[in-house]
């Protein structure tokens, strides 16, 4: 068989193309069209052009949700990257007990965001939750801190739970990266008189450069569309203090029946996602991402 196309080959490509075109590509294009409509999803749609888009800039809530999304991205990165890196390097060590620790470290990966959200909402519950009971037992606080109901800390708490969920994944990434660092580098450094700290900063971290990029990009693109866990934990509240972009989009479209305006937010999400991904490919290239995993 050559490198040309024949009817057989078109038949082979067709299912994938059809599925993708009808249920992903077409809806994406339609979203752009919807963003110019005044429509509740059932009644008659009215074309209003750029009105929804103009509204965006005077809508404090939408601007706030943009800000919160960026905040979530930053907090996620700050919580997840250093800890994942350290755990990954820790697990890359060849001691037996570290392998045993690893078995337990990865258990959170088995649960869906919804399962994790529900569990943590109970753990943090101000009336009968575990955290407050523990704090009370050791004498800190009155045992009634409303972790998820406090506007000032809700976002912080949510990003910590997200970190709990995703650190196992990223530490696995770092573990396989760290396993690939050749021993000879460490030996050479040792001969040059480098101590463990200096080896860590001059060998381990630079060698993990691409892993850091891969992991960071995944954290950033992931937090851009983060929805499930927030929906379960806070439903965007208290107030709008955890209403990130994806949450705002969902509420506009499905709670307020404002299809047009929801679509504006959806298009922004798509554009942000594509831009972030292009930057990814620019800086990393998929091949380098792959090479991270060969040590697994």
């Amino acid at each position: 068989m050559g490198t040309g196309m024949n009817w057989q080959r078109w038949v082979m490509v067709a299912p994938a193309v059809l599925f993708f075109a009808v249920f992903a590509l077409f809806p994406m294009i339609v979203a752009v069209y919807y963003s110019g409509l005044n429509w509740n999803g059932i009644g008659i749609a009215k074309w209003v052009g750029g009105q929804n888009w103009a509204e965006l800039f005077s809508d404090g809530e939408a601007l706030m949700s943009l800000r919160l999304t960026v905040e979530l991205m930053v907090l996620s990165w700050v919580f997840q990257t250093p800890i994942s890196l350290l755990i990954g390097v820790f697990l890359a060590g060849r001691q037996k007990h570290r392998a045993v620790f690893g078995v337990f470290y990865f258990v959170p990966l088995l649960f869906s965001s919804v399962a994790i959200g529900v569990t943590w909402s109970y753990i943090l519950n101000p009336n009968f939750g575990l955290v407050d009971a523990l704090l009370k037992a050791v004498g800190i606080g009155n045992g009634e801190q409303n972790w998820l109901g406090n506007t000032h800390i809700a976002m912080l708490v949510v990003s910590m739970i997200i970190a709990w969920q995703f650190i196992p994944f990223h530490s696995l990434l770092y573990q396989s990266g760290a396993k690939q660092i050749p021993d000879s580098l460490y030996e050479a450094a040792k001969i040059d008189g480098a101590g463990p700290w200096s080896s860590f900063f001059h060998i381990t971290i630079p060698q993990l450069k691409y892993t850091v990029v891969t992991s960071s990009v995944l954290i950033l693109t992931g937090s851009l569309t983060y929805f499930d866990l927030i929906y379960v934990l806070t439903d965007g509240g208290p107030g709008t203090s955890t209403t990130v972009l994806a949450m705002d989009m969902y509420k506009q479209a499905f709670s307020n029946q404002n299809i047009g305006y929801g679509s504006v937010l959806a298009v922004i999400l798509a554009v942000a996602g594509v831009v972030l991904s292009i930057l990814t490919l620019r800086f990393t290239g998929f091949n380098r991402m792959e090479s991270q995993l060969e040590g697994m």
């Binding site: 994406m28 919807y34 569309t225 994806a246 479209a253 292009i278």
Partner: peptide, 16 residues
């Protein structure tokens, strides 16, 4: 398509 988030297409998918 790798870069398209599900959330971005969910409204038209619902209608479709």
């Amino acid at each position: 398509g790798l870069a398209l988030p599900i959330q971005a297409a969910i409204i038209p998918i619902y209608i479709l």
